[in-house]
Amino acid sequence: MKKVVIEVCLGTSCHLLGAQDLMAYLERVPKDWKELIDVRGTTCLHHCGKGPNISVNGTIYTGMTPDKLQDVLSDLIEAAE
């Protein structure tokens, strides 16, 4: 399976609304998931104010929380299996 590309916006607006919690979550995902994802930081995804924002394989998600991110990832990974 091709790796899931996750871009986390670390711009000031998203930082203020909790982007670091998403990064912290992505650092502690289970090992078998870790091999399936490619985490990158970015400075802006152009949806400021609705953050924290991420892009998963090019799709933008706003207002993310670690819980919502987990749902997005498990859907993608399960679909691939």
């Binding site: 670390l10 711009g11 000031t12 930082h15 203020l16 802006c44």
Partner: peptide
């Protein structure tokens, strides 16, 4: 720092850029 970050965002300044 929290208030300063809110001022940055309010002024449209992205420190990372």
């Amino acid at each position: 720092y929290e208030e300063l970050a809110a001022m940055f965002v309010g002024a449209g300044i992205n420190v990372t850029e």
